[in-house]
Every structure is written in C-alpha cells, then in structure tokens.
C-alpha cells in the first residue's frame, strides 16, 4: 500500500505540469505512451524521467477530459500500439496551462531574484 500511495501522491503533485508536458509533446504529432516518455527524456536532456505510474493515469484522465483522443495503430516497427492525439480542446488547455506556468515562473523568479530596495518609504 505504501508504494501505491507514493505513486498517487506523485500523480497529484505533478498533475498540472505533467498534463502540460504531455500535451506539449503531442503537439508534434500522435504518440504512444513509450514514445512520450522517450520524447520527454530527450527534450529535457535526460532531466525528466516520467514514471509510468504517473504517465498512464494522466493519459487516461486527459482522454476522459477530452483533451486527447486515442487510436490503435501499427508503429514503424510493426508493433500495435495505442497512439494519443491532442484535440482542439486540448490545445486550448495547453495554451492556458502555458500561460499559468509562465506566470508562476515569473512570480517565483521575482521572489528569488529580488533586488534589495534602496529605501523603506
């Protein structure tokens, strides 16, 4: 049970960000779960290793929310796989996620790099 809670917590902690990352990845074209993991790892220079325990719940949830759709297709290596594709709704969500993300980065940035003021007035 301990393991399970650990996974669940991670899903929730990463939820907003992971969604954004997945949607961003799918912007370049339909992709299967394994492909998304690889893409994220490559893009982030091996910094982001997405747990499958977070990825698959996230994908299934995104599908239910209507932000992605899935189809079964053959991969280049003749492997039958489930391909996820971003929807118009998903694209809108991505834009708003991105906007929020930028504001948070900016806000955190202004906190972290604040320059001491000259006077107290």
């Amino acid at each position: 049970m301990g393991d399970r809670d650990q996974y669940k917590n991670r899903v929730e902690l990463l939820q907003g960000t992971l969604d954004m990352l997945i949607l961003q990845t799918l912007q370049w074209g339909p992709q299967h779960g394994y492909g998304i993991v690889q893409a994220l790892r490559l893009q982030s220079g091996d910094m982001l290793q997405v747990e499958t325990g977070s990825l698959y719940p996230a994908l299934h949830r995104l599908e239910r929310q209507g932000w992605v759709q899935s189809d079964w297709k053959q991969s280049e290596s003749k492997q039958r796989a489930r391909y996820y594709r971003i929807t118009a709704k998903g694209k809108k969500q991505l834009a708003s996620d991105l906007g929020r993300w930028e504001r948070i980065v900016e806000a955190i940035g202004s906190v972290m790099y604040v320059e001491p003021k000259e006077s107290e007035s």
């Binding site: 299967h32 779960g33 492909g35 492997q79 796989a81 489930r82």
Partner: peptide, 10 residues
C-alpha cells in the same frame, strides 16, 4: 495490451 506494447518497444 498498451503496457505490453510499451515493454515490447522498450
């Protein structure tokens, strides 16, 4: 099947 495919590709 999705998980199997994932493993297979890895």
């Amino acid at each position: 099947e999705e998980i199997n495919a994932h493993l297979q590709m890895a």
